[in-house]
Nucleic acid binder design. Structure first.
Lengths: 118, 118
DNA sequence: TCATGTGTGGACTGTATACTACACGATATA
DNA sequence: TATATCGTGTAGTATACAGTCCACACATGA
């Protein structure tokens, strides 16, 4: 298992906690509407990463990028999946093509599309 | 529910069956290593679409595009998800940017990347 | 010392997923 | 008229997912 999620979450939460007691497991769990013991287990990788909805809430609370946190949890957002599934052939070809392309090249595409050069 | 999957599958299989008895529910199910009653239910949308593995086997048997069939089943392949999860921020930005871009423009990107213009 | 807050342990739960097993009646074939 | 093949109906199942619930021990501050 990607034992990453819990470690990452714990590190991030503990950092925030030093400056703000609202980031104790208990208080954070309460805002996420889950049980503290559950969150504790997730942080210690005793429990698989939460659902997409909970991870998104978590990202919002921790000020993290939702897509990154979802990826750490082994997920891709339903939103992105929906975009792909609308034109599966097209996006499958694209993603496979870009798999090995370096970051800066992909970013250039993103920017050019955004600037309307297409 | 996307009542599409079953209809599509049934139509495709029946077409093939007219020319080749190997495409009866029973014989096809046998090659897929599932029960015929299960496949029958899937075709009549009485049962949710199968797992990714079974859909991929189905696509191979029917000569269909795996990504398209997966999409009809409401899924995105683990392979593509893995590519996204390796660079979630990058691919999330890209996919959202391309969401509304017309097919031909996306295809142009695919071709240009393939031709090494990046 | 007592209330409050902290993290954690153990057991259990509801729902979904992805099927199987077996049987039935209809149809076609020999 | 056996035999085989067809599609389908009913019931049941194993596993994973995404948590809950309650209890415990420790620490801190009033």
């Amino acid at each position: 298992m990607s034992t990453q999620f819990g470690d990452y979450l714990r590190a991030r939460r503990e950092t925030l906690q030093t400056a703000d007691p609202r980031f104790s497991i208990r208080q954070l769990a309460s805002r996420l509407q889950v049980q503290p013991s559950y969150l504790s287990k997730v942080e210690r990788n005793e429990q698989a990463p939460p659902s997409e909805a909970t991870i998104l809430a978590l990202a919002a609370e921790l000020g993290e990028d939702p897509d990154v946190l979802l990826a750490l949890g082994g997920k891709v957002s339903a939103e992105l999946r929906a975009v792909i599934m609308r034109r599966p052939k097209l996006f499958a070809a694209l993603i496979r093509e870009l798999e090995t392309l370096p970051d800066h090249a992909v970013l250039r595409i993103v920017r050019e599309v955004r600037d309307g050069n297409w």
